[in-house]
Write a protein that binds this DNA or RNA. Sequence first.
DNA 1: TGACTGTTGGAACAAACATTCCATATTGCC
DNA 2: GGCAATATGGAATGTTTGTTCCAACAGTCA
Lengths: 283, 283
Amino acid sequence: MPPEIAALPAPPGDYAELVRRLRAEGARLPPRLRQVAEHMLAHPEDMAFQTTAEIAARAGVQPSTLVRFAQALDYPGFSDLQQVFRNRLRRESSDHRARLAALRGEASGEGGMARTLLEGFIRASQASLETLSGRTDSALIETAAARLARAGTVYLVGARRMFPVVSYLAYAFGKLGIRAVLVDNVGGLGAEQAAMAGPGDAMIAVSFAPYTPQTVEIAREAHRSGVPVIALTDGALSPLAVECDILLEVVEADFGAFRSMAATFALAMTLSVATAEKIRADA
Amino acid sequence: MPPEIAALPAPPGDYAELVRRLRAEGARLPPRLRQVAEHMLAHPEDMAFQTTAEIAARAGVQPSTLVRFAQALDYPGFSDLQQVFRNRLRRESSDHRARLAALRGEASGEGGMARTLLEGFIRASQASLETLSGRTDSALIETAAARLARAGTVYLVGARRMFPVVSYLAYAFGKLGIRAVLVDNVGGLGAEQAAMAGPGDAMIAVSFAPYTPQTVEIAREAHRSGVPVIALTDGALSPLAVECDILLEVVEADFGAFRSMAATFALAMTLSVATAEKIRADA
DNA sequence: TGACTGTTGGAACAAACATTCCATATTGCC
DNA sequence: GGCAATATGGAATGTTTGTTCCAACAGTCA
């Protein structure tokens, strides 16, 4: 027979469980605590962000009551209860990030080095796709596609790590029957290849940190010559951001020193097919 | 005459404005502050929830730098900057939830063509990654990496849709200090480029249905000359399957006429880093 | 080279914070 | 009605937090 240790009950681990718990035993809570529970369910966002003093004031109780409330639900303190609300707000993306961090932490877990690396790159790709799904303004893609659809020729610029993306775009555009030129810098003639572009054309420039100077330079030149430039880049700090007409932002997760390209490719695919659709719609 | 009060500029009131501001003047920020800006844009959720100490550690700066960063953007202190991120998260979480519901509600299509395409490509990529995770033999990757690690030079062969993968491998191997030659077929000299390979080297050949004849031909030639060939392809029915020493199978999902490349890239990344690790272990 | 301006790291600081404690009030029970 | 148990308000407390300050450093122009 086990000794009578007060088996301290586990607090609800997530928001859904918390709500279930309150529904079950919320009725037999003391008046002030019930008041807190009601406020909590009515304003879950306040619970995530505000301080004890603020929440207490809004709920019409003392800060200490909040702590007591949390402890009545078996949390060590109010902060632990609050964490549940914060996690609820950030949803799955934190899941991915935590898993990535864990993977990075273990030197080489079970399954061997290759397994660890593979899982790491897969997680990084998944996280990137997740972010792309949540944060991308599809209207902006449509705008970009419309611009590309009107272009006589689409010039594709990108180097080093991003060259795969533009070479893919060259393939996709070709297959879709859209006239495109891959600025591949063969023979060092990148600038000359791109200089063919005029205001009736368009350019897709792809560059992520650390930005290849030549890509930025070519985009700048084109932009200043009146060529519509669509930038595929990693954010507002990119030097491409100021040298473009339409900025498509992509956030890629990394694993080790290597950044995923999954989101960038998905966006590139979308952009090319959307352009083809626009052309078809116009005709 | 009014006294010379320094008309203190107003800080960005919401996230969109903050991004706009950074786009305009982010480039001329001091290095450390720009580092903060980059971290901030890459991990906006961290900015909403974590404390100065935590954020600073992740961004690789001092807590004081965060305060300085906020003040550089005309906020009185870091807390005021953080408030922008919290507000964004509050609003966006309801946005995101609504969008998800909308997407679930309507079968597909009315949410805009671009959205439909984007979600489709994202889903295809995720499915591919899922499959890769589930059915890849990591021991085989280790074997392949060991083979590559022993090679004098790695020859990279792939064309058309798969050219992005080999061009990425060329980038990765270069960055990792592994001698590699990208067989890019410039000037139609692909066969000659690949003919340099000998038994002391190795070749990675990438081809998926419909297989590019030249890629298959080059791999066959190399294999018969005693060059270790590692094939990255889509299954046992591939013509590459018989002309290689190690067969790495990848199943990619497609959306419309376009197949994802997410799994192939993840595998390529794994293979290159695993090779570098093997080389390091051998030394 | 040498002053000057701007940037950075790290310790010191004061304010804000969640939490604890205790006296008081309320409730339930005999 | 009186006692015990619980609930509550509000001050006290020890952390943790964001912030400030200063010395050291880097870059720039004379």
